[in-house]
């Protein structure tokens, strides 16, 4: 592997980690703000400073998001010839359906954002693929 490609890979991994962290964070914020009808700062305090169980669950949810995203990447890169814009559309429909599924709003928002993020990454890859072969990042 070329050194330049390795640097880029670290950068992409960091980007993915940050994006999935953001998804978990935003979902937690929406859930806590709507449940407690409180301010952003109060929700932030409830997430990080009230008890360790909430904070740990947040970190676990982030890890789950990261793993799902990485798996989606591996699957996409393996079968990239079969993926079209249609699969992105299906992911968006799944996100739409999730909105109406009865579950804890934290998970609902988290998986909606995750589906949209995966779809967005696929759109990006398909767009790049039209110009040159996938770099698998």
């Amino acid at each position: 592997m070329k050194p330049g490609r390795k640097d880029k890979m670290t950068l992409y991994m960091l980007r993915n980690a940050f994006s999935t962290l953001l998804i978990a964070f935003v979902s937690f914020m929406i859930s806590l703000i709507s449940y407690y009808e409180c301010s952003f700062v109060e929700a932030l305090r409830r997430l990080f400073f009230v008890n360790i169980y909430t904070t740990l669950y947040f970190l676990l949810l982030w890890l789950l998001n990261y793993l799902i995203f990485e798996i989606s990447k591996i699957i996409y890169d393996t079968y990239e010839q079969r993926f079209t814009y249609k699969s992105c559309f299906i992911l968006c429909v799944v996100a739409g359906v999730l909105y109406f599924v009865e579950m804890l709003d934290l998970f609902r928002w988290n998986f909606i954002f995750l589906c949209l993020f995966i779809a967005l990454r696929q759109v990006k890859q398909l767009w790049i693929h039209q110009k040159r072969p996938s770099n698998g990042l």
């Binding site: 008890n51 169980y53 909430t54 740990l56 669950y57 676990l60 949810l61 789950l64 804890l104």
Partner: peptide, 13 residues
């Protein structure tokens, strides 16, 4: 882990 911690998480959050 998320599944087994769910009740605990709901209880505390």
């Amino acid at each position: 882990t998320l599944f087994f911690w769910y009740q605990n998480f709901i209880f505390h959050t």
